[in-house]
Nucleic acid binder design. Structure first.
Lengths: 254, 254
DNA sequence: TAGTGGTCTAGACCACGGT
DNA sequence: CCGTGGTCTAGACCACTAT
């Protein structure tokens, strides 16, 4: 600071500088939904290899600033939508006000880790209900809900052996129990092939995994593993509607 | 399903298969903390280019299965630690039981988005307190706490112009207000250079950003932006201690 | 069919940590 | 100093979408 011109003692990686430059360009020169030039052109324009440019784009996509679709192009993403996952929204599955849509259901033996959380035997079958959640016309989450047979003893398998009808039946039976509490965790994961398909993303896409344990009758009565698109969603826990904060420099909408 | 041998109609990418193979190997043939062969050897062993192998390793690191350190090697990561962020832990900053350590503090003009959430003028300076959180001997989160001057009117800048002492002073003054409620959101982000340094990661590393708005006197009295290491942390919201669920196939410890 | 992003290769050099 | 992971290049081909 005393006359030294601050040589680039620690040169930042090119893709990092590139990301910064692009980020600023997105703020000032592009509008939501606009299509960027293709990767080969962009790389040429900045004088870097395509792989390097892609590293910058990946980062920006991870931060929810861009959306890339094969065969189409790269577009400027809208600000992340606030998705309520507070106790008021992530309710006892199937209850009134539930924002989830049942897809189908079957009786299967779950992964060991799931069995452990449910306190069932490791070869014991449980009801597995698939549900999906849509917000603002877009699929935002896919859920696997595990329900031990003991939680829905009166379920008659005759009415609907599988499919959405069966899923609704399981949820209906679940309502008979009184919810005593729940327990939630959030972590980063990557989309499995089936979830990716449902979320309209490629396998491996980053997702926020919300694991909820529902307690009733002093036991774990159900376990929900919900995977949310990490690129488009901001999970909100308050019940007031969500804070409008972003880490970008000038993204605050009017 | 009627005799067709299911040709590889949709061949999965190599890095995806590789990830699966490695994942299974980690479950069965490696123990936590063990060092993997270096990337060049691994790539040769699997007959792929190093870049392809790295794509698989990146995924596994994202899922918290591996830890890579430049100059050292790639090691098998322990299961993610459950980090409580429920209302019982993420309390009114500075209150008893607070798990955060004040680092330093200064009076600065925050980003526009922060100013908007605080409902302060866009050129108005606020107290910015840096704090860090350590769990199990490891840094897990870095926080920026923004406190409008109006929230701590009696703070005397004379005692400590900057540093940890000043940070403690701001938090002490904050205690005079009565917390009326809070509002929380979680989203995926990438570590800024300063956060990355504090978290012992490279810039751009995936982080879970927890934004909390604290209300008092009918206003937003403070805003906390906490960035947690996404690779090592599972954020738990219940107050019972955390669920032991992982997405890996056989990771459940005894 | 043309153009896009997604995957993959075989090299090279750099920055860092331990010796 | 050596070995590690991190960055970067200049190509190639593939899978998908829209026309």
């Amino acid at each position: 600071m005393v006359g030294t011109t601050q040589l680039e003692t620690v040169p930042e990686p090119k893709y990092w500088q590139l990301k910064t430059v692009l980020s600023e360009a997105l703020d000032s020169e592009f509008t939501v939904g606009e299509i960027l030039p293709n990767e080969r052109d962009l790389a040429a324009r900045f004088g870097v290899a395509r792989a390097t440019l892609r590293q910058a784009l990946e980062q920006l996509e991870l931060e929810g600033r861009l959306q890339r679709r094969r065969g189409v192009g790269t577009t400027v993403a809208p600000p992340r939508m606030g998705v309520p996952v507070g106790t008021a929204q992530h309710v006892w599955p199937g209850a009134a006000g539930d924002t989830w849509q049942p897809v189908d259901s079957a009786l299967t033996v779950p992964a060991v880790s799931v069995a452990a959380a449910l306190e069932t035997g490791r070869d014991e079958a449980v009801h597995t209900v698939r549900r999906s959640r849509v917000s603002h016309g877009q699929p935002v989450a896919a859920e696997l809900l595990y329900v031990p047979v003991a939680s829905v003893p009166d379920l008659s398998a005759i009415d609907a052996p599988s499919g959405a009808a069966r899923a609704r039946a399981v949820l209906r039976e679940l309502q008979r129990l009184e919810l005593e509490g729940q327990d939630r965790a959030v972590e980063l994961g990557s989309a499995r092939a089936d979830d990716a398909k449902e979320l309209d993303r490629l396998p491996g896409a980053p997702v926020l995994v919300v694991t909820t344990r529902f307690f009733a009758q002093g036991r774990t009565a159900a376990l929900s593993v919900a995977t949310y698109r990490a690129d488009t969603c901001r999970l909100t826990f308050g019940d007031t509607g969500g804070v409008e904060i972003h880490h970008g420099s000038e993204r605050q909408a009017s």
